[in-house]
């Protein structure tokens, strides 16, 4: 089995999963308690007016028809109008998406860089203070609930030591000039992204350290030492390179978790993003908005899983061969 057929199979799986999720997404919101009519339709409306509104939103049609409509319009990114703002959901999401992506990317790159480097550093300094410190702090960060750390930070920087902005993506009247705007954005990003790194680096550092230590005791690493390869070559080219497959898998597998973490982070730091939008929409029984945000998040998760599979295949040559090959 070549890499192409492996890829094809992964893509087919991804599509299947997306379909299942979309179906759940549809059913789930209709099973939730509460009735959209009561949220958006004034009880004092006449029956005709209510009917008209239901027709506008397609709520008068049978459930199955609603489902088909839902699927076909999602494929066109037509997520309908928000019950709440009466604006197209997609354009509302589009406004917020860049913010979320920025926060997400910053979190992600930060966590991976800090976590993996600390893990490698700890493994290379086995039994020294450096290793014990990394393991200890990593365990602590891993064990304490994320939102708790974030609330503490909020308290620290919001009340005792107000040097960092604690909410929003930018200052209320934005500063003049492109560069100043950029700086202002980064300034606002520090606390939400930084707190995410603090919460997340532990599992990465511990995992990297463990897999590195295992790799460093492998015969091929001893062989590399015997070959007279220099220390850095052994550490990076042989040990780290061989543990990259599981680490990359971890990277992509942690994406879905990071997405749900984003909802919390965005609401704690009032970040104008998709996660907070989803939370608001859910609280307000805003079906189209919630479904839209959900769709986007599900898409992100599925794509990241797909990327994980592809990346795994690229870094681990054994995956490409698959079941038919010799071992």
């Amino acid at each position: 089995m070549g890499f192409r057929s492996y890829l094809l199979k992964r893509v087919l799986y991804a599509i299947l999963v997306l379909f299942v999720i979309l179906t759940f997404n549809f059913v789930l919101f209709r099973l939730m308690p509460g009735d959209p009519e009561k949220m958006i339709i004034d009880p004092n409306f006449t029956a005709e007016a209510k009917m008209e509104l239901r027709r506008q939103y397609g709520l008068d049609e049978p459930l199955f028809k609603q489902y088909i409509n839902y699927l076909s319009s999602l494929l066109r990114f037509d997520m309908g109008l928000s019950f709440n703002t009466r604006r197209p959901v997609w354009s509302e999401l589009k406004e917020r998406l860049p913010n979320t992506i920025v926060l997400f990317a910053a979190t992600f790159i930060g966590t991976a860089t800090v976590g993996i480097s600390l893990g490698v550093y700890a493994a290379a300094n086995r039994d020294k203070f450096a290793e014990k410190f990394v393991v200890g702090s990593g365990l602590f960060a891993y064990a304490v609930p994320g939102f708790f750390i974030q609330l503490l930070l909020l308290l620290l920087f919001g009340y005792y030591w107000p040097i960092l902005p604690i909410h929003g993506t930018m200052s209320a009247p934005p500063p003049e000039g492109t560069f100043a705007i950029l700086l202002d954005r980064i300034w606002h990003l520090i606390l939400p992204a930084g707190s995410n790194v603090l919460i997340g680096f532990g599992s990465w550092a511990l995992y990297t350290r463990n897999t590195m230590l295992e790799a460093l005791s492998q015969d091929y690493v001893v062989t590399a030492r015997a070959k007279g390869i220099h220390r850095r070559g052994i550490l990076y080219h042989h040990a780290l390179r061989s543990v990259l497959p599981p680490i990359i898998t971890l990277i992509f597998m942690s994406l879905p978790g990071a997405v749900s973490g984003a909802v919390i982070t965005e609401s704690i730091f009032s970040w104008h993003g998709v996660g907070r939008y989803l939370l608001d929409a859910t609280l307000k029984m805003d079906y189209p908005a919630a479904q839209g945000a959900f769709y986007l998040i599900a898409l992100a998760v599925i794509v990241s899983n797909l990327l994980a599979d592809v990346a795994y295949g690229l870094v681990d040559p054994r995956i490409r061969v698959g079941a038919g090959g010799q071992s």
């Binding site: 001893v222 030492r225 015997a226 070959k227 390869i229 061989s242 990259l244 681990d316 040559p317």
Partner: peptide, 30 residues
């Protein structure tokens, strides 16, 4: 000395090759 004067064939050579590098490259590296 290592590999230039004294080289080694390890016990369990199955694992003496790094699984993520091409066989030839591991010789080139040495």
């Amino acid at each position: 000395i290592r590999w230039k004067r004294i080289s080694m064939v390890f016990q369990g050579a199955m694992n003496a090759l790094n699984p993520v590098h091409r066989v030839g490259e591991q010789i080139v590296e040495a």
